[in-house]
Every structure is written in C-alpha cells, then in structure tokens.
C-alpha cells in the first residue's frame, strides 16, 4: 500500500514536471500571428506531442503540431479569442493530457487591418524557396538577377568562387530557380 502511494506520488510529480512554454512572449498573443508553444520537461527537453485539440474558440482559431518539431505546436487566430487547448502526450506508455489556457488573443492593431500575403498557389514556389534558401544570403533581391538563363546560372555556380558551394543543386533545382527568376511579378 505504501509502495503504491509512493509510486502515485512519483508519477504525479513527474506529470507536474511537464509544462507548456509559449515561445513568443505574452504580448505576442495577437490575431494573425502564428504563435508557437513547446511541451517540455522541467529539464527543457521537448516532449513529443501525440495530438492536440482546441477546446474553445473553434471558429476563430486553429491549432496544429509542428510537423518538423513534434514537441512544438502552433496556434493562429483570425479574430480576438480566449483559447484553450488540450495537449496529449505519452507518459510511461499511457496517453496523458494537459489542458492549456485560456489564453487571451488580442487584436494585433487598433485598426485591425493587416496586409496578408496571398495564399501560396504559385507554380514557382520551389524556385522561390530555393532562391530564398540558397541565393539570398548574397543576392538580396531576386530582381537583381531576373531573366537569367539556365546556362548562365549553371556557369556562375561553376565559375564564381562563392557560388561553388551551390554545386550540390541538381539541374532540376537550377531550372526551378531559373523559372522563378523569369516569372517575377
């Protein structure tokens, strides 16, 4: 009996050690902002999240687990809201739940107007992202390199010293960058 009590105490202590950390500060809980949160142990080590469920503000907000960092989840609201979320994780082979919130998400500005980028539907997305990831460290704007041919880009990669590291790009990737640079708005 005493052993069971000790065991239960240990489990409850361990459970209390799980905490959710807002990665943006409280004054960043605003509409239109994708707000990241982290489920972690008291040692700061992340805990993989099994699933996540909004329990309030269902029409104003959405929540998702970061597919690349499963200890983190994201919440975004398009209207001011009071948000609570259930976060499920595995502990000692059992699924556990932490209810987090309510969080007050305020309007991002008094005018309430935010310039939103259009939904990403462009067919040059791959080239745009490759250019951003591989080229923009040196070329600040795609406009300074518009209308380049595949051959020009490939020759630059081979002949310009600082661009040699881009030799890892495949022809298809170079073609995607070329397509993007030739179809700037």
């Amino acid at each position: 009996m005493r052993l069971l009590a000790v065991l239960l105490f240990l489990i409850s202590t361990e459970l209390q050690a799980q905490q959710i950390l807002p990665l943006f500060q409280n004054d960043s809980l605003r509409t239109f902002v994708t707000m990241p949160f982290r489920l972690r142990k008291s040692t700061s080590e992340g805990i993989p999240i099994v699933s996540i469920k909004l329990v309030s503000a269902l029409s104003e907000c959405k929540a998702m687990i970061d597919p690349n960092i499963t200890s983190n989840f994201l919440i975004r609201c398009e209207s001011p809201a009071s948000v609570s979320v259930d976060v499920y994780f595995e502990f000692n082979g059992v699924i556990q739940k932490i209810r987090y919130g309510p969080l007050t998400v305020a309007q991002i500005s008094d005018t309430g107007v935010v310039v939103q980028p259009p939904a990403v539907t462009d067919k040059y997305k791959t080239g745009r992202e490759l250019f951003a990831a591989k080229c923009m460290e040196c070329h600040q704007s795609p406009y300074e390199k518009e209308n380049k041919s595949f051959t020009q880009i490939k020759q630059s990669i081979q002949s310009v010293g600082e661009m040699n590291k881009l030799n890892v790009l495949t022809d298809a990737q170079i073609q995607a960058i070329r397509d993007y640079l030739n179809h700037l708005d």
């Binding site: 994708t34 959405k62 998702m64 970061d66 597919p67 690349n68 960092i69 994201l74 975004r76 980028p117 939904a119 990403v120 992202e129």
Partner: peptide, 13 residues
C-alpha cells in the same frame, strides 16, 4: 491547415 498557418518550414527551424 498549412495555408492557414502560412507554414513554410521544410525542416525543423
């Protein structure tokens, strides 16, 4: 969902 969040990270950021 990715579009709602403007999720753009291709690897762990």
């Amino acid at each position: 969902t990715f579009s709602f969040f403007s999720y753009r990270y291709e690897k762990a950021t």
